[in-house]
Amino acid sequence: MTVEEFGQYLSSQSPGLETSNGLYIHYIRGSISSEYSFEGEESDFSFCLFTEEESLHEFIDRYKIKNLSDLEELGYNHIWMRYLNGEADTEVMQMKFEEGPLRFRLHKMKTMIFSASLHFYDEVYVHLTLPEDFISYFFKNKSKISTAMANRYQF
């Protein structure tokens, strides 16, 4: 599949499509991104894996798409591999901090945690990869997150 063919197909699905395995693909003005949302066992948290906007060529290359059936098969495992390779983020929202979800991104030997809406940034020198890891981060850093939440409109 060429980039042009892929772009034409996505244009016919505008503004995006959902694969049979639940991956949402958004195609707007020549940029493409993907996301997969789910809730953890702990109902107070929701999770969303997503990729930033990228070119069609990068998308095809990073997801290893050769034809439309490859596209249709994309799901949780595919975007999860991109997270583990530092090419996607995980956004975790605790319902009581609904206005300030945290984003997690693996980078080298650490996990970066940030929220633009909270003016929050942190790093931990371990890879956070399981829903339990993200939830544990929220509980261990409750006071930092609460302070950022309380001060979010002051900056």
Score class of each variant (00 low, 15 high):
Ser46Leu: 06
Asn21Trp: 06
Tyr153Val: 01
Ser33Arg: 00
Asn85Phe: 15
Phe134Val: 02
Tyr137His: 05
Leu68Met: 09
Gly100Ala: 06
Tyr121Val: 07
Thr2Asp: 09
Phe139Lys: 13
Ala148Glu: 03
Tyr83Ala: 08
Gly22Arg: 05
Tyr36Thr: 05
Met1Val: 04
Ser143Gln: 14
Phe38Tyr: 14
Leu102Ser: 02
Ser11Ala: 15
Val92Asp: 01
Ala116Leu: 09
Asn85Gln: 15
Tyr9Met: 05
Tyr153Ile: 00
Asp70Glu: 09
Leu130His: 14
Glu53Asp: 11
Asn77Arg: 10
Phe138Met: 03
Gln13Cys: 14
Glu18Pro: 01
Glu99Thr: 12
Leu74Arg: 01
Gly22Pro: 02
Lys108Met: 09
Ser11Arg: 10
Phe45Lys: 07
Ser20Glu: 13
Ser117Glu: 07
Ser33Glu: 04
Tyr9Phe: 14
Ile25Phe: 02
Thr51Leu: 05
Lys66Ala: 12
Thr19Ile: 04
Lys142Glu: 15
Lys66Gln: 12
Leu56Met: 07
Met112Gly: 01
Glu4Ala: 12
Ala116Trp: 08
Tyr36Met: 03
Lys108Val: 09
Arg29His: 11
Glu54Gly: 09
Lys64Ala: 15
Ile135Ser: 02
Leu23Thr: 02
Phe120Pro: 01
Ser43Ile: 11
Thr129Lys: 15
Thr129His: 14
Asp44His: 09
Met109Asn: 13
Ser43Cys: 10
Phe38Asn: 05
Tyr83Trp: 12
Glu35Met: 08
Phe114Asp: 02
Thr19Ala: 03
Tyr121Gln: 06
Ser55Tyr: 07
Ile32Met: 04
Asp89Asn: 14
His57Val: 00
Ser117Pro: 03
Lys66Phe: 11
Thr2Glu: 06
Ser55Ala: 10
Gly22Tyr: 02
Ile135Asn: 01
Glu53Ser: 09
Ile79Ala: 05
Glu54Asn: 04
Ser20Tyr: 08
Glu58Leu: 08
Tyr125Asp: 08
Ser43Asp: 13
Lys140Ile: 03
His127Pro: 07
Gly7Ile: 08
Phe97Ala: 08
Lys140Phe: 11
Thr2Ile: 03
Phe38Cys: 08
Phe139Ser: 14
Ile32Trp: 04
Trp80Leu: 15
Gln13Val: 06
Thr19Val: 08
Leu23Lys: 05
Tyr63Trp: 11
Phe59Asp: 02
Glu99Trp: 14
Leu118His: 02
Lys110Ala: 10
